[in-house]
Design a protein around this nucleic acid. Structure first.
Lengths: 185, 185
DNA sequence: TACAATTTTCAGAAATTTCTGAAAGTTAAG
DNA sequence: CTTAACTTTCAGAAATTTCTGAAAATTGTA
């Protein structure tokens, strides 16, 4: 397990970016390495390639499993656990997207729902609640939209993402053509 | 500056979530407080309300300004700097979205562009580069899409986000009606 | 069951991030 | 220019997160 300088740079960068993407440096590195490495890797190989402790690898793999980003494999005649990235790049991106939606939106939605149940006690409270309601409505919409996007199949997702400013035109079209798709069929 | 228990809970939660959203606890708290508080607040008021040091407030405000999330105001006859959240909830969300796109995607795109310029030295390198190209293509597309979304005006954005599974139908419609919007006009 | 291979756990160490508060810097007003 | 009001800076302290490595737990095999 020697990394080419290419792979090295890729892996180190994903380590740096890790924290911005929701995991820590070594988890980011492990994910990157499993993503570009065509063969399954076991914990010792990961530890050796990334120069981190065996225990750290174990914790990192646990985390990557919680994110559903890795897959466990077994090689015949070998008792070690081997891991690969779970699916294609698109699959991985989708999974990261879904997990982040869960972690970044759901807790806040839950809290806001609770807070909005309370009767405001005074003027200041009422104003604050108005804002909270706005925040809630927006995050709720965003959450649903994110959900919709992650359910789209890859063809539609590609189509949508490639529309560019054509989106406006399509939305306009929707308004004009009454009945939407049924008419077009 | 006394916070109602509602506001308190909201502010503390945004503090906790802060790290997931790209800033630290106190920056998250400051942002939350400025968002629900109708009046501009000065640094001393923030420090007092959040029970943090004056220096920390100064650093936090600097960060919020870097994110373009706060606006500076001056009250007549008062030399202190007063801050409010920069715009409506939608404005704020859009800004956070844009800033995060910049911070989470751009550095990686830059690195991948560089790495992909190198000629692969061997088989392993070539395979790794294929993967990197896939990652690049996906992130590039995502980046452009995020850009498109943040340029949409609020009406279109709302329309789009409310489509739900209707998105597929609309995309299908696009395929059927040749010429897109121009036809519908 | 016994054992060796492997993985997981977790207390403490190390690294990193955040925070404080005093000092330095800036700015407006007289 | 001087002063007072205010803001920023930043070295070190505190808090938090991450990492290590040895011990405990688990698992497959004979």
């Amino acid at each position: 397990m020697k990394l080419t300088s290419q792979a090295q740079a890729f892996v180190l960068h994903f380590g740096e970016m890790g924290s911005r993407w929701g995991f820590n440096r070594t988890v980011g590195q492990m994910f990157a390495l499993l993503t570009i490495h065509p063969e399954p890797l076991n914990a010792d190989q990961l530890a050796q390639a990334l120069k981190i402790s065996r225990g750290n690898v174990s914790m990192g793999l646990k985390e990557l499993q919680a994110w559903r980003l890795v897959e466990l494999h077994h090689l015949p005649g070998d008792r070690k656990d081997y891991f690969t990235a779970a699916g294609s790049i698109w699959d991985l991106a989708r999974t990261v997207f879904e997990e982040r939606r869960k972690r970044e939106l759901d807790p806040t939605l839950t809290l806001l729902r609770q807070l909005l149940l309370n009767e405001p006690q005074d003027e200041q409270d009422a104003l604050a609640q108005e804002k909270m309601q706005e925040v809630y409505d927006l995050l709720e919409l965003l959450d649903q939209f994110a959900n919709t996007l992650s359910r789209l199949d890859q063809r539609d997702l590609l189509k949508l993402m490639r529309l560019g400013s054509g989106i406006s035109k399509l939305l306009e079209l929707k308004g004009k053509v009454k009945g939407g798709a049924s008419k077009a069929k």
